[in-house]
Amino acid sequence: MAQAAFEDVVEDFEFLEDWEDRYRHVIELGKAMPPLPDALKVPATKVDGCASQVWLHPTVSGGEYHFQGDSDAMIVRGLIAVLHRLYDGLPLDQVGQVDAAAELGRLGLNDHLSAQRSNGLRAMVERIRMQAAEAV
């Protein structure tokens, strides 16, 4: 059920066999994202449970879930970019149906992220699911 943009990430990961190359790719995805305006980096958009500073700002347009995000850590910013490709543009009622653990598992992230980063990633997924559920 993954979006085409996420399937592109999966294909890139299949092409990049070395985890260090994949790690660099995640960082590059984060660098390519537009920064979240400082005015949106407020307590209401801050994600608890992350070792670094993380902000996710949701919007709903035409019944679709969209979000902007940012972090003070480059790898986490890249993980936000991956989540953006997984969730952004989905109809609100489909956001909660995405099996994020399975989809992200296709990238092998679970095997290569520290426990803190994995916990932070789960916290971001939960925030996205909660935001979409509240907007329905």
Rank of each mutant, 00 (worst) to 15 (best):
E103W: 06
A102D: 15
L113W: 00
V82M: 04
D18K: 13
L121T: 12
V95I: 06
V9S: 08
G89L: 06
Y23E: 05
A115H: 13
P58T: 03
M130R: 14
G69M: 05
D38H: 10
F15Y: 12
D88E: 11
G120Y: 06
D21W: 08
A2Y: 04
H57W: 09
G105N: 03
L109E: 01
C50D: 04
G49C: 07
A102E: 14
G49V: 02
M33T: 12
H112K: 10
L83W: 05
A5S: 15
S114A: 01
A102M: 11
K41D: 03
Q68Y: 08
R129I: 02
A44G: 00
Q116N: 14
Q53C: 01
V10C: 09
L40I: 04
E14Y: 14
V95W: 06
W55C: 07
V95K: 05
G30F: 09
L16R: 12
A123N: 13
L56R: 01
D8Y: 02
V10P: 04
Q97N: 11
I128E: 00
Y65A: 01
E64M: 09
F13H: 08
V47N: 05
Q68H: 09
V42I: 15
S118D: 09
M33G: 01
S52Q: 02
R129A: 13
I75H: 01
A2S: 15
E20Q: 14
R24C: 07
Q3G: 07
M1G: 15
A32G: 11
S114Q: 06
D21K: 11
D8F: 00
H25D: 02
D21E: 15
Q97C: 09
A102I: 07
L109Q: 11
Q131A: 13
I75P: 00
D99R: 10
G30D: 07
M130T: 15
D38E: 15
A123P: 02
N119S: 11
A135D: 00
S52T: 03
D21C: 09
A101F: 10
M33E: 13
V47R: 05
E7C: 05
A4T: 14
Y23T: 00
L36C: 04
D72Q: 06
D21T: 11
D72P: 04
M74R: 15
P35G: 10
A81N: 03
D18F: 10
E134I: 08
I128F: 04
L83G: 01
H66G: 09
V82S: 01
E20H: 14
D111H: 11
V125G: 08
R22V: 00
T45K: 04
Q53M: 07
M1V: 10
R24V: 13
R77N: 07
P58N: 10
H112A: 03
P35I: 01
D21Y: 11
L104T: 10
F15A: 14
A102L: 15
S71V: 02
A5W: 07
T59S: 12
A132N: 06
I128C: 05
V42L: 12
Y65N: 05
K31I: 03
A123R: 06
G62C: 05
D99K: 08
V95A: 05
A32W: 02
E126T: 12
F13W: 05
S114P: 08
S52V: 09
E17Q: 13
A32E: 13
G49M: 06
Q116M: 13
